[in-house]
Design a protein around this nucleic acid. Structure first.
Lengths: 221, 221
DNA sequence: AATTGTGAATTGATTCACAGCT
DNA sequence: AGCTGTGAATCAATTCACAATT
């Protein structure tokens, strides 16, 4: 009996020495979407779902959904579909949603303070545990400690923080980013409208609001 | 003499009837990045730039930059590079940055009010001209009118609004989206963590903060 | 000599088509 | 019969390599 959860390439690779194909980055994004849909299904007490139905909900083609999932093992049952709870659990594990990640936020301006107040993360397994700013003021209005930049290194080390949200003005973004990286941050969600230079081993996702608007603007005729 | 600003495929197409290759969507995103870099160069009184230098600043390969630009014509001068101001102007035109677009924002919660206060758009040619909410309160704290949902249709029509930013809770996102589309909105920047269903001719860009964090989380080991 | 513009080659992602389970 | 898993085929994007131009 073959381990049902092992992807088929495993067998081949043990023999051939080939590397397992690593999932394309876009597939990882889609995993998050699937996860959201599965959570909704679970809330509605659905317990099996076909690739066609789940794909519809996620706004993709069913073959793409199956390919995406296949990177992580044999997760469905032919003729029946996928078990909602098992799949949800599995994707959560892959995305690291299950170990609650501490996240710090740097730059408490307009956008920064909105994100501090925005609750949407906790549910997904993230928690902003502290915020930093050059001149921390109005600390009282947040539920997390608002600290001066001086305390950054210490806090990251003591709390084993690996992720940061960067919401400082463009002009300071690179230098603050360097500081984060120097102290061990491995992943940055960047809202400053700048291209950040980082070492290979640090991941950056940028959300640039002006770029998104400009992009839309191109498509309206 | 051949028009220097016409892409080479034009000639062929007049003969062959082939469609011009339409730029990939990602190229349009990169155009915005290039534009930012060009603005910075202009501010520093630089007036020519090579594809290598500009690409470096934008974080892409120089060949990619050239391919991206080639979709829009012959913009550089061999041996010399690109004229900063001319290129900036051209990209601004392509992205529609030059006609100032009115944008409305729907859903004035945490994130919505932060975006209203966030000035970063105006500089890029966009202006949030009004905000809508089911229960508009604290209207005084914003510089734009905060209106009840009832006034939506009328406002869109009277002001010829084509773009909207959607920052309502996930549960309401689809229905509000439908309403926007019904009244003529053609492009939506969606911050609600949902997959929106829209007709073909409406463009949606989604920014899902939880998805971005989850994605980072996958990459930290 | 420097640097763009662009076909050709390559790499990557998506979709098809169907074999293989349940 | 229904639905997944996956190799092969297609489609799209990126990079290479070099001719063309200043």
């Amino acid at each position: 009996m073959i381990d049902k959860t092992a992807p088929a390439w495993l067998d081949r690779d043990l023999v051939s020495g080939t590397k397992p194909p690593s999932p394309p980055r876009k597939a990882i994004y889609r995993l998050s979407i699937y996860l959201r849909c599965l959570q909704k299904l679970r809330d509605n007490r659905v317990d099996m779902v076909s690739s066609a139905a789940l794909a519809k909900a996620a706004g993709v083609k069913s073959t793409q959904l199956r390919k995406d999932l296949a990177y992580f093992g044999q997760l469905g049952t032919r003729g029946l579909g996928y078990n909602v709870e098992a799949l949800r659990k599995m994707i959560g594990d892959v995305l690291g949603q299950n170990r609650l990640q501490p996240v710090i936020l740097v730059g408490v301006g307009n956008l920064g303070s909105a994100l501090l107040r925005y609750g949407g993360f906790r549910k997904e397994g993230f928690e902003i545990t502290a915020a930093f700013d050059l001149l921390p003021k109005a600390a009282g209005q947040f539920t997390v400690p608002l600290l001066p930049m001086g305390g950054l290194a210490d806090y990251i080390l003591k709390n084993n923080v690996k992720m940061a949200i960067l919401t400082v003005p463009a002009i300071n973004a690179q230098s603050v980013c360097n500081e984060l990286v120097a102290h061990g941050i491995q992943a940055i969600l960047n809202f400053s409208p700048t291209v950040l230079e980082t070492p290979e081993n640090v991941v950056v996702n940028s959300v640039d609001l002006a770029v998104e608007l400009e992009n839309l603007s191109y498509f309206i005729r």
